[in-house]
Design a protein around this nucleic acid. Structure first.
Lengths: 228, 228
DNA sequence: TCGCCTTCTCGTCAAGGTGACGATTAACAT
DNA sequence: ATGTTAATCGTCACCTTGACGAGAAGGCGA
């Protein structure tokens, strides 16, 4: 029997931490449907392109980054028959974590891209096009969960970072304050989480802080505990 | 520009625990490509069918179950351009956990379906068709991880189960032995994991065991710890 | 220069969770 | 009756965690 054809797109939830606030990159749609509405950046998958390659390409186009120091993983696939009024479009959503906020609109494609506070976007259900509110919700939930049992928070930091900077990542993503002393103990005692470089910096003010790089661990045992 | 069309299929990793062994449902392919090879059950998504609906339909066709008491979730999407020699076929893989082993070949579709020990299938990389070895690997990894921080193990049990039966699920999925006394303490003290029904059973032999049903919790705090 | 403020870093202590393991209970089989 | 099986309860040492004190080492303004 004849099978229906689908269009397949890749949409990106690109998260960063800027000024202690979790932000996501959005573009303003210039064409219908949802013209003028904010949307997650994305695009169609090319004929002989793998999904991961398509996501990496889109990430590069939107941020100008070549994913160096960041993190990119598949999030989930959204296929409600009515999610796109133009037809049967499948969206394979990806989650990207990038350090610093790279200057928005650095890429050529999306002339009108900018960073938005996640908390604000999630507050009003109507600000994002398509089912992107749900995709963003799922992406943020994934990021929050992954900080617990993986050393992924380092993906939000530049290659060398202080324990304090890493703690601010957790605080921004989880929206909770953590005790600096207990956090310091936990991070430095968990094997493979971070490795000291020997260098120090004073960019945070106060006493010079040691600089660390991400360790080799893939998972954290025992996990970081999000506050109850 | 014109976008390429994709065919979209749903493939299922259906896991169960039978005789203390983690098993997966596979079908033997009757047509090329990979004719005669084992494969995960699956099928194409219908024109106006949601992905979750398609997965649930396939699960029902393969097991005869209407997903009662089990668990079904999206796993990941596989889209390598060369994963299917017939063309550009996207596979949205799903993970299902079902209690007991329902009799194989109960459904009408797959005349030649049966349960196979996961450990054996993962041992030889060539026994499964397409990229199903990778999908199975990812599905088992997801299941193992989810047992740690969610009460999902109950999905492998019938509606009423004993602590010992639940422990055997963990032992089969993790491939490790757990101390019955510590497991009992952990499970009964974690809020929302299980709830006593007041009834008992002797189906395990030995002293009568209390029967429990799954509690309302979505996540386990603190998580179960897989042995190091 | 001298406080003062900031942040990092190390310690202490009690509470709670975990692993190891002894002991008892309550069914069934022979 | 006796042994076997598995469930359930208890104990104890150890470790992790949360709360918090205290000092170290920079910058900055008076």
């Amino acid at each position: 029997m004849a099978q229906p054809d689908f269009l397949v797109a890749v949409d990106l939830v690109i998260l960063t931490v800027d000024a202690d606030v979790l932000k996501v990159l959005c573009v303003r749609r210039g064409v219908a449907p949802y013209k003028g509405r904010l949307a997650l950046p994305g695009g169609f998958v090319r004929p002989s392109e793998d999904l991961a390659d398509a996501a990496e390409r889109e990430l590069g186009e939107e941020t100008g980054l070549s994913d160096l120091g960041g993190h990119l993983e598949q999030l989930a696939t959204y296929g409600d028959p009515k999610r796109d009024p133009r037809g049967r479009v499948l969206s394979v959503a990806h989650l990207a974590l990038v350090p610093d906020p790279p200057p928005a609109t650095a890429g050529s494609d999306a002339a009108d891209a900018d960073w938005f506070a996640v908390e604000e976007l999630l507050g009003s259900r109507r600000r994002l096009a398509f089912d992107h509110h749900r995709i963003l919700t799922d992406g943020v939930a994934r990021a929050r969960a992954k900080l617990e049992y993986s050393p992924l928070a380092a993906a939000f930091c530049r290659s060398e970072f202080t324990i304090g900077e890493l703690r601010q990542v957790y605080e921004a993503v989880w929206g909770a304050e953590l005790d600096p002393r207990n956090f310091h103990r936990k991070v430095t005692k968990t094997p493979g989480f971070v490795e000291a470089t020997g260098r120090t910096t004073t960019r945070q003010g106060g006493r010079p802080a040691r600089l660390f790089v991400a360790g080799g661990a893939e998972v954290l045992y025992p996990p970081m505990q999000a506050p109850a």
